[in-house]
């Protein structure tokens, strides 16, 4: 199969105005993916599906990712005048990356027996701008999984034929897979609370009065 760079170059040539970035994956899987721009996403998806050498006709999996606001630290070489001398100094800088939601599609080719190719789309933000174009018109198998992302992450897919909640009930208002989801306080007694459960236990029960703490039991 072609490399991602080749796919990117051919897709950008075939669709005027399309912009594709390659997102590296530095983990042991080393599976880089294509970040496609939302405006041209349906056209790029059609290209990936219909191109005779790619024929990525099977979308096996669609999932969501929640990225909160984060700060990354980098060191940059800056020229500075130190003690009357111009030197190159390493200076740490902080970069703020605003949060966004991501939809990830895993594509295979049944015709050519190759894959996977991973494509991603990112929303503008995690609030009102959490919208993406639906790829269900291109791959029918994405229908339920896009509904699941809508249910659990709250991404609205424009052009989806039937965008409703699929796992939770219709009256439900939260998006439980988001990292800032707060569960209803339904904690019940646990014999050995630890980690997250211990944190919830402390939150649930009122703090112990000070004198009770000191009294020998």
């Amino acid at each position: 199969m072609e490399s991602l760079e080749q796919i990117k170059a051919r897709a950008e040539a075939a669709i005027p105005g399309a912009k594709i970035d390659i997102v590296p994956n530095l983990g042991p899987a080393n599976q880089p993916s294509l970040l496609i721009d939302n405006e041209h996403a349906p056209a790029i998806a059609k290209f990936l599906r219909d191109d005779p050498t790619l024929r990525l006709d099977f979308c096996s999996n669609v999932t969501g990712v929640d990225w909160l606001d984060r700060v990354t630290k980098k060191t940059v070489k800056v020229k500075k005048v130190v003690e009357g001398e111009e030197k190159e100094v390493n200076e740490p800088i902080e970069e703020r990356i605003p949060g966004y939601l991501e939809a990830v599609y895993h594509l295979f080719s049944m015709a050519h027996k190759h894959g996977p190719i991973t494509i991603r789309m990112r929303t503008r933000d995690r609030g009102e701008g959490a919208r993406l174009p639906s790829l269900t018109p291109v791959w029918r198998s994405a229908e339920f999984q896009e509904r699941e992302i809508f249910d659990l992450y709250g991404i609205r897919f424009d052009g989806h034929p039937d965008l409703r909640r699929i796992l939770m009930w219709d009256e439900f208002e939260d998006h439980p897979m988001r990292k800032d989801y707060v569960q209803p306080d339904d904690f019940e007694w646990e014999p050995t609370p630890h980690d997250d459960v211990l944190a919830r236990a402390k939150q649930h029960y009122a703090p112990r009065p000070a004198e009770q703490e000191l009294r020998p039991s």
Binding site: D170, E171, F172, E173, D174, P184, D186, E188, W189, Y205
Partner: peptide
């Protein structure tokens, strides 16, 4: 079906959670 959970989360006539 409530906005965040089932309403009520338990029937107090049938069930009382164990107390700490």
């Amino acid at each position: 079906f409530g906005k965040h959970d089932l309403e009520p989360p338990a029937n107090p006539d049938v069930f009382q959670p164990p107390e700490l």
